[in-house]
Design a protein around this nucleic acid. Structure first.
Lengths: 190, 190
DNA sequence: CCTCCTCTAGAGTGATCGCTCTACTCGATG
DNA sequence: CATCGAGTAGAGCGATCACTCTAGAGGAGG
């Protein structure tokens, strides 16, 4: 085994959360897919499913932030980077049979009214994304307040497009959301 | 009993789907809350949880479409109606302790990769929303293609804002999404 | 009155849920 | 070399899961 048991459990859980959500992911299935003994799960995560879930949310959220911000920074211009985020997300969705969209959206909706600790974990992730995206817009010379609105608008458009895209198995919503975000950026610059 | 057993089961399930999602909603809890005998559930829905889920998705989707389109049509202008949709959604969210957002978004994400019949039910609902909103924009004199993009953009912005709003327990995302949609409408008109 | 059918009623099914428990392996430390 | 804690290993716990089954209530038609 290359990776540690703990990492395998985290990675497997993250992958299952994407497709099956929080309640839809069973711990027995997790340890089975991760080739880990059941006892190890409760050794590494004594808090049980909730602790594991919290770590997965934060971990997946951070990884996705890094990925998206890297793509965002890839374009020659801010506009190009923004467009790349949406077209890149569309490409991944197509390649994974419309399974791999936002790593935490399903879980975020599930736990919003059922688990305060997990809800807080999702808030931390979303806040991190907003701060990172805001910083990117500010660096490009946009005022702080407009930059924050742009960041929130972009993330909301992306998340909403993911919902439509996964359901309809089409990337049309992502293309529309990308154009709409671009329009908002233009308006903030003008 | 005023309403029929079947209706009580449908209403109760719809309410539970909003808060707990599809996998998070147990049939035992449903019949208990609906004051219905367990046997009646399988009498009215011989297809079990999946059939019940499908009916609830379509029913909730249609009801929400009627509600939103009524608010959309309430404003003196198209712009006012659009703004009312987002401010109305924000008001409901605040009043229900950030529980009652989109009635099918959580379920849509859960079933997208797990149940083809239920996924199709969510597609029907989203398509219905898109068609209804497109019609509204077309009626206001916007071209068919631009109207469809506006409809998809508005719904995506609303859904994405719901994700952020429920997680953060704040309506900021809804306000931003509303402004962004308004901007898209202006651009389509100009 | 009897039959038939729709619907109510809930006990009981095997499977799976999250979780606890004890036992064992193994490398580090005295 | 004995000891000890970290991590591996999995059987077994009560509870709950979706679901099936039989039984009876109650109105309609002959």
């Amino acid at each position: 085994m290359e990776t540690s048991t703990k990492d395998r459990i985290l990675d497997t859980t993250a992958a299952m959360f994407r497709r099956y959500g929080y309640t839809g992911t069973g711990l027995k299935q997790v340890v089975q897919r991760a080739n880990a003994p059941f006892g190890s799960l409760y050794h590494h995560f004594p808090g049980g499913k909730e602790e594991l879930g919290g770590e997965v949310i934060r971990r997946s959220g951070k990884m996705y932030e890094d990925l998206v911000m890297a793509i965002f920074a890839s374009g020659a211009t801010l506009e190009e980077g923004l467009a790349n985020v949406f077209s890149g997300a569309a490409a991944v969705l197509r390649e994974t049979d419309y399974a791999d969209a936002c790593p935490i959206a399903t879980v975020a909706l599930e736990v919003a009214s059922t688990s305060e600790p997990l809800r807080k974990a999702t808030v931390e992730v979303f806040d991190g994304w907003i701060v990172a995206a805001t910083l990117r817009f500010v660096t490009a010379g946009i005022s702080e307040t407009k930059a924050r609105d742009l960041a929130i608008g972009m993330i909301a458009a992306l998340e909403g497009a993911f919902v439509l895209a996964r359901a309809t198995r089409s990337t049309e919503a992502l293309e529309v959301a990308g154009k709409m975000s671009l329009l908002a950026l233009e308006a903030a610059r003008g």
